[in-house]
Each structure stands twice: as C-alpha cells, then as structure tokens.
Amino acid sequence: MTGLRVALIASARHPITEPFAGGLEAHTWGLAHALIRRGHEVELFAAPGSDPALEARELPVRKVVLSSAARADASMPAGRWMEEHHAYLSLMLDLARDGEKRFDVVHNNSLHYLPVAMAPAVRIPVITTLHTPPTPWLESAIQTHEACPVLFTAVSEFTASAWHPVVPAARVVRNGIDTAFWQPGPGGSELVWSGRLVPEKAPHLAMRAARAAGVPLRIAGPISDERYFDEQVAPLLGDGITHVGHLDRHALAQLLATSAAALVTPSWDEPYGLVVAEALACGTPVCGFDRGALAEILTPDCGRLAPPGDVRALAALIPRVMELDRRDARRRAEDFCALDRTADAYTSLYEEVAR
C-alpha cells in the first residue's frame, strides 16, 4: 500500500519540540518523523510551538473564550482543563465533518478522553495508544459504547495487562528510540538520572541511592513540580549531586554517553520507560526499581532492578551495574528498543485498518 494520510493527535498541553516536556512528547516527535520518512503524509494536532521541521501542518489549539458569567459559575473547572477540553472537542468535530476526505487513519497519542468518546462520529479508523495506567476519564469514554470502535495499542505488556479489564484486546506496540541518533559513548565515572522532576519519577530516591553508594550523580530534566523540587530535590543537591537543567536531545545524549550507569527510580508503575531505552542506546547500563514495564526492557546483561522504593538495595546494585559491558547495553537497544520497529508496526496497523 502506498503512503497513507495519518492524523496524528498529540498533547494539547505541551508542544512537540525540544527540549521535550516528557517521554510522551519525545515519542510523538520521533514517531512523526519516522512515519514521514516512510512516505506517509502526517498531519499533527499538537500544542502551539511544535517543531516546524516535522513538515506536517500544525492544527491550531482553538482557545475557548468564556463569558465572565460562565467563568463565575460554580461548575467552572480549571482554565487549563477547559482549554484542553475545547481543543479536543474542536478537533473531533472537525474530523467528524469531513475527516474521511483528508485522512486514511487517525492515530491518537493524547491522554484525553474525547478522541475516544467521539470516535463513532468519525468515518475513518481511529487507533488510540495507551501510554499510561488506567484513568477514570478514559475508562469512562471506552465504556460509553456497547462496542468501542477504537483499536487500542499499549506501549508494553505491563500496560496492556493493566488495561485488560476494559480493553481486553490491546495490541502491544512498544515505544522506540532512534538508535542512529542515540549513539554509544565511552562512559564515565558518574551516574545519570533523566526525566521530569516530579514525585512519580522520584529523582530524590536516585539521589539518596547515589549518595549511599558514594558515586556522583548528574540529574537532567525539567522542574515540572516546583513544590516537590523545593522540598524533596533541592535539599539533596551538592556534595557530588548536580542538576544540569532541562537539556535538548543532543546535550542529553552526550550526558548519557559519558555516564557510568543510569538510575531509573519510578514511584509509580512505569508504562514503558523511554529513558531506559535512551540510556541503553548510549551504551549506558541501567539500575532501577522493578516497577511497571522496566523488567520487559532490561536483561541481566544491561541492567539490574531493586525492589520498588528500596534505596538501600538500589545503592548496593550500583557498583555491579557500573561494571556491565556497555556493548551489551547498546545491543539490547538495537534489538528491542529501535524506533524502526515501532514505526514498522504502526505502518502495518495503519494498512490493516485502512483496508
């Protein structure tokens, strides 16, 4: 089948551009580029300010203009919630109007419920990727239909299992990273932690483990929760632990490639763990907590996992992980985490539903 016309729905909250707000934005950016390279026409729905180099038309996020009376109503939700709701409502109404004339398939990578709830109104196939553990809004949207017309994929076996009671037939298509970009490096003497600085990613636990192991640690990522950062992270900085800021991909790849090992310390059930794949591609073995899908990615050759939340056990594993062969880490990324595998799987899925 020749190239398909794909409507790719992304986050209306964060632009799809570097430095990425999180793994979801990084994944959507990489997938869009990979699909375009395969000859598909990709039209991206995303927040303003998304990467113009995607060569895909950015659909505007239509901001709602409410009257003072509506804003004063007791039912008025937070302004950001209302703007997101209005953006996705506008998009789905637009697709329902004449989407079948412009697209062959809709691929929803957002976390919003409306693309699922309104899928029956769209006269083209809708695919939704499950990127998170179950949420009440999305579960409700799925159950509004006797037979939900959406085809669901999940980013890991773990995530598919978590959604199984509501979505019993989700197909697993794991996220991937561009192994041609994330190149192996020589390693170094310091540890690295990367990601959003939020409680569910728990960088403070990585800081405690690094300090207990006596190994310096560099932390990279946006301060997405200022109160958490001020109360839990900032007091632990210094004495060999530094926050190097919110880095673009080039700077982050350099940081990973020159680190001895990567710490991954989720305090929630990680649906996939893009930071794990990025570290492995740079030849950097991973030491983390056994939560969510991390055990699907790591093998004993490229990483070790401690019981969830056990800082002492994590610290004890760090010296062993630093001794692992960096070539094995890179090999695991090439075999299991490559973006080409992800894009090929979605291309096959698009062709299947478009028939």
Rank of each mutant, 00 (worst) to 15 (best):
R211C: 04
A212S: 10
A212R: 15
A212Q: 15
P216R: 03
R218T: 08
A220F: 09
G221I: 02
G221E: 00
R227M: 08
Y228F: 12
Y228T: 07
F229R: 13
D230G: 14
Q232M: 13
G238K: 00
D239F: 00
D239A: 10
I241N: 01
I241V: 15
H243S: 03
V244H: 05
V244W: 02
V244Y: 00
V244E: 07
H246E: 03
D248A: 06
A251R: 13
A253Y: 00
Q254I: 05
T258K: 08
S259V: 11
A261E: 02
A262R: 04
A262F: 00
A262L: 04
S267P: 06
S267N: 14
S267Y: 00
W268E: 00
D269N: 14
E270M: 02
E270F: 01
P271Q: 06
P271M: 06
Y272V: 09
Y272C: 09
G273R: 02
L274H: 07
L274I: 15
L274P: 05
L274Q: 12
V275L: 01
V275G: 06
V276C: 14
A277Q: 08
A277M: 04
E278Y: 04
E278F: 00
E278C: 02
E278I: 01
A281L: 09
C282N: 04
C282M: 07
V286N: 02
V286D: 01
C287N: 06
G288H: 11
D290R: 15
R291C: 07
R291H: 04
R291M: 10
R291P: 10
L294P: 10
L294C: 04
I297D: 02
T299D: 10
T299S: 15
T299Y: 07
G303N: 09
G303W: 09
R304N: 11
A306N: 10
P307I: 12
P308H: 02
G309Y: 01
D310R: 09
A313H: 12
A313L: 07
L314W: 01
A315D: 09
L317Q: 05
I318C: 04
I318P: 01
I318D: 02
P319D: 04
P319M: 06
V321L: 11
V321N: 08
E323C: 14
E323V: 14
L324I: 15
D325A: 13
R326V: 14
R326C: 13
D328M: 11
D328C: 14
R331E: 01
A333H: 08
A333D: 05
E334G: 13
D335A: 13
F336T: 14
C337Y: 04
L339E: 04
A343D: 03
A345T: 08
Y346N: 06
Y346R: 07
T347R: 09
L349S: 13
Y350S: 01
E351G: 08
V353E: 01
A354Q: 11
R355K: 13
